[in-house]
Each structure stands twice: as structure tokens, then as C-alpha cells.
Amino acid sequence: MRLLEVEDLHVEFAARGLDNRVRVARALNGVSFTVDAGEVVGLVGETGAGKSLTALAAMGLLRAPARIPQGSIRFEGQDILAMSDRELEKIRGRRMAMVVQSPLTSLDPLKRIGDQLVRMQRVHGTARGAEARARAEAMLAAVRIPDPARRMQAWPHELSGGMAQRVLIAMALVNEPALVIADEPTTGLDVTVQAQVLDTLRDLVRARNLGALVITHDLGVVAHYCQRVAVMFAGRIVEDGPVAEVFARPAHPYTQALIASTPGRIAQLGYTVTGGTPPDLYDLPSGCLYRDRCPRATTACLAPPPRIALDATHGAACHYAWEAA
């Protein structure tokens, strides 16, 4: 079942420059992807690619000066962009939930863990009183927090980073949403803790048939926890497809460069990559945005590349997607 459908999403910011002229940063330039129930989709890219912005837009959280001049976001068939704040509040935390990067600052420091989980349910009218407490405790157990009954009484500052991140996942899932958006859920956690948090998230997605969008810059997370991946560059999705397929046969030169810059590949192939600066969002060139860094760019790349389907599920926005690296 289709949960989230983002189509041709554009987001821009107006900012006043030194010379007092208003300039427009085009942060998202045609982002399209879908998330179905029961799958984990990875959204991967480097700093400034627009990953988090995409997540905020999907949650209906974009505010001025951000503008959405073009595109659509549909969640469970409803148009997110047409909804009022009132309607969005009913959905957020209820049907779609978000897990953010900094767990300790995302919990209310003046409320016990259990009370926060109960409040989350009361606000959305899913459960109250003893029932809500029982569900909160069950949720803590589900995210593998040891001794959940006791942890209900814990204050946020008593939790370790990994524990706090699991509490945030519990908060996100306690109202049994259909879609979870996790923005860098394990960045800053130690590797051993990261594995536990991701296992927790994946098991819950499977057990409850949720859809999940995981935003990350870590290709390892994508490789082992996602079924499908969308690679972002300069506010566009340059390649998307099943994870195994994209890693085995990356079609877009940016995806290829990304994979070739992992230390493991460097050890095999030597240093082959030359990093460059991403294009200026205030002054985007026409045509392919990766052109200036691309080893195979030609004059054809002056025209914007369409998404070329390599098979039913795998596509890349490159004129030369058919040519292997």
C-alpha cells in the first residue's frame, strides 16, 4: 500500500543579500519518490543535498521563508500541501511520526519518560489513563529498553544516548503511525549502539507493517537496513532503485563517485575521486547539476537529464545512464 508519494517537489528560499537584492536559493529542484507500507526507504546524500528539507516538507513542517512553488506531497492519499495546520497536527505524531537526530534535546527534560509517552497518546486521543501507561510500557519493551516498568519513571538526563534514541523511537511509534521518518537516527551514536537502534527500528517496521523513510549520509546504514534507496544531489534525486541493484550497478556518476569514496573501495581501487564543490543554490546552472564534477559530461548535459529507467524499479537522472562506469 502506498503511504507517501512525493512528486516533482520544489522548495526555494528567498534571502536578502549584501546588496539588498532578494536572491532565491533553489534548495529542492524536483524531488520524486514513494514509500510503501512494510518497506524502509533510504534517502542518502551529502551536506546540503536537501535530505532533511525533504523530510520537513513531507511532514508539512516547512514555514516561511521556505516556499513550495511546484510539486505535490500525498500521504495516505491526502494532499499534505493543501492541509491546514489544524489538520496537519492531527496527522503528525498520529499517522506519521518523526525521529530526529539529537535525542537528548528532543525529550522534555522536566517530564519523566513514562509521562511523555502517556501525554503523546492523550494529545492524539489514542488512549488515556491506565491503558496509556500499559501501552507506553509495552512500547518501551518493544524498543528493547531493559526493565521498562522502572524506566517509565526515569528522567531524560538519566538515559544514555542510545537509550534516549530508542525512547524517541518509542515516542514516535506509540500511536502506531503508518509512516516513520527518521532523520539521521544514529548519527553521533557509537557503532555498537547504532546497530542496536537500527535493529529496533527495522524489527518494528517488519512486525507492524510500517513504512519508513531513513535519511542518512551513511552508506552502511542504507546497505543493511533499507530495501530501496534514493540518492540526492543538489536538491534532486539522481538515482533510485532497490539497494542491492544500486550498489551493484550504480548508473549515475555521482552514485558511482559516492561508492568509490568509501574507504573500503579506496583500498581496492586506489584514490579515484576528486571531490568538488556542489553548485551554488543561488545560481543553479541549467541542465545537469552534476555536470561540473562529472567525468563523462558532454554538451548533451547542458539539457536537464530525465530519469531514465534501467528496469522496472531502478532509474537514474543521467543522459548516459545506460553506459556503465
Binding site: 531493559p146 557503532v191 547504532q194 546497530a195 551513511d218 552502511g220 542504507v222 546497505a223 543493511h224 561508492i259
Partner: peptide, 22 residues
């Protein structure tokens, strides 16, 4: 061994051998 097994290699073809520690 635990540290290395928790690492996620950026390659879906590599199988993970996970050690559980509590």
C-alpha cells in the same frame, strides 16, 4: 570482535555477523 561486527560495511552484498552484547 564485537566492535568490528557492529560496523556496517557500505556494501549490501556483505553479510553481517552480529555479536549480541548486553
Amino acid at each position: 570482535q564485537v566492535l568490528l561486527s557492529a560496523h556496517l560495511p557500505p556494501d549490501p552484498a556483505m553479510r553481517l555477523r552480529r555479536h549480541e552484547v548486553t
